[in-house]
Design a protein around this nucleic acid. Structure first.
Length: 478
RNA sequence: GGCCCCGUCGUCUAACGGACAGGACACCGCUCUUUCAAGGCGGAAAUACGGGUUCGACUCCCGUCGGGGCCA
């Protein structure tokens, strides 16, 4: 039997980390089993479904490399199929039309609650005769369609959790469609899973309570249910389900900040699963080989942004400047960084990226780290002070540095030579390098000064050193 | 509130019923170093609690508590 899995999001928001991981686990399991992974868009809720979100889901999955073999299949285009199933259920007496009004239902509900019973539909309309139904239909009394739910305990097997028992008496005859043309989630999902030959339904643990309802549809239609695996939820750092409105960023946002797909994938896979040999860095190809649903952790995982950042930094440092340039040029979402690529000659730009990526968490931060190269900067003169040295001592150090750099011939203006010159200027190298570095960057923390001088060139470097010396001259006047 | 799921360092996790309960992120030292980053070395840090079962429990059972989810 060929394994078939699916990722079935409702396009009511951008793809975020939680749903991306659900997609990923479906993908990994299918690939591990040499099976088929399907994308299905559950857009039966016309009100809340938006094309924009459909596009985002597709685009983000593609960016992450979670490629589907079939789809996207849109539920909105399959109304005829649901209609057929609904009619069959109606004809077989497995489902019925319920004409009860909102008020009636509400009254019944309150009554049940005061009696201490679980609130559920009492099945009034299931007892209607054919004549009564036709009479109501001819009068156009509004109705919904309910499934007849047997009074028993349903047990199903979850691949991660074992047997899960559910008392169906608590559910009552639930609504499966607003009408023949308007199927609800609990109908459309199992119908699609069946017709699309889904063998394994892998989804978030929030769907555990939905599963018995969906199995009931299978039973009513005499279909064989799939295997279910409910993977743990990802909780936000503040607690609670990671959700769009709970500050969870979309994949798109991570992408626009310059996170790398391999870092996000690596991060997500480690949330609930781990490789046999202890390691943190793992490629998706390796995971596909090893992936196993039974090994997936049962408890929900708290999202830890620090670890994501650590992974991203790791992968970023492994990229060459040319690769990073390529990413910026290819990705529309990083368009806003493209200007940085043209401010200096190409070779210099590579050098800048080289220095920046060693320190940055994201592609965006590469240029933030090196921002002194791109815009005017200022700093308080106190920043020039190294340890407990006086302004005078700092000033003479800078003058000394300036004169020595001035004397370096243009053709000797390279790393080794400059280093040789500067290293001899003082016993305490910090006295040479700290004020120089501040003069060149205006920052407390930055890449090393010689590298920066090589980017600026001799002339601009001397200009910035002079500016620092001027700052210190002011001191004496005041 | 009812039902369901879950419970190992702050976080992600490892540990055939039998090790000093291991690793990673974060944190704190030290080291390297002009600063930052990266690296190296080291540290603090957990089996929720209470009962059983067993020669022996993180591991199995029950209860309590806690967290989360779904429905209302």
């Amino acid at each position: 039997m060929v394994v078939r899995t699916r990722f079935a999001p409702s396009p009511t928001g951008y793809l975020h980390l939680g749903s991306a991981r659900t997609a990923l686990f479906n993908f990994l399991f299918a690939k591990n089993q040499k099976g088929v992974f399907i994308l299905r868009i559950e857009d039966t809720d016309r009100e809340r479904s938006k094309k924009e979100f459909v596009d985002d889901i597709i685009e983000s999955l593609q960016w992450l490399g979670i490629n589907y073999d079939e789809g996207p299949i849109f539920q909105s285009e399959r109304i005829e199929i649901y209609k057929r199933v609904i009619e069959e259920l109606l004809n077989k007496g497995k489902a019925y039309r319920c004409f009860c009004s909102k008020e009636e239902l509400e009254n019944k509900r309150l009554e049940q609650i005061t009696k201490g019973e679980p609130p559920r539909y009492d099945g009034t309309c299931s007892k209607l005769t054919k004549e009564e139904i036709n009479e109501k239909l001819s009068r156009n009394v509004p109705y919904v369609i309910r499934l007849k739910v047997p009074e028993q305990v349903l047990t199903f097997k979850d691949l991660l959790r074992g047997e899960i028992k559910y008392d169906l008496r608590l559910i009552g005859d639930f609504v499966i469609a607003k009408s023949e043309n308007e199927p609800l989630f609990h109908l459309a999902t199992p119908v699609d899973d069946y017709y699309q030959g889904i063998t394994h339904v892998i989804r978030g643990a929030e769907h555990i309570p939905n599963t018995p309802k969906q199995i009931l549809i299978y039973k009513a239609m005499n279909w064989k249910p799939p295997i279910y695996a409910h993977i743990p939820l990802i909780l936000g750092e503040a607690g609670g389900k990671l959700s769009k409105r709970h500050g969870a960023k979309s994949i798109k946002e991570y992408r626009a900040e310059g996170f790398l797909p391999e870092a996000i994938l690596n991060f997500l896979v480690l949330l609930g699963w781990h490789p046999k040999r202890e390691k943190e860095i793992i490629s998706i190809e390796e995971v596909i080989k090893e992936f196993n649903l039974e090994d997936v952790e049962k408890r929900s995982a708290v999202f830890n942004s620090k670890k994501l950042i650590w992974l991203n930094k790791f992968y970023l440092r492994k990229k060459t400047s040319q690769e990073i340039e390529k990413i910026i040029l290819a990705d529309e979402y990083l368009k806003y960084l493209r200007d940085y690529l043209n401010k200096y000659p190409k070779e210099i730009t590579y050098k800048i990226i080289e220095l920046g990526k060693e320190r940055a968490n994201t592609i965006k931060e590469i240029f933030e780290t090196m921002k002194f190269l791109y815009e005017k900067f200022d700093y308080p003169k106190e920043l020039l002070i190294w340890k407990d040295y006086t302004f005078d001592q700092i000033k003479s150090s800078l003058i000394n540095v300036r004169e020595n750099i001035k004397n370096i011939p243009e053709d000797k203006f390279n790393y080794e030579f400059i280093k040789q010159v500067l290293d001899t200027l003082s016993e305490d190298k910090g006295l040479t390098y700290w004020p120089l570095r501040v003069a060149l960057t205006g920052l407390e923390a930055s890449p090393p000064p010689i590298d920066i001088m090589l980017i600026y060139g001799k002339e601009k470097s001397l200009e910035l050193i002079n500016k620092a010396i001027d700052k210190l001259n002011d001191i004496q006047i005041s």
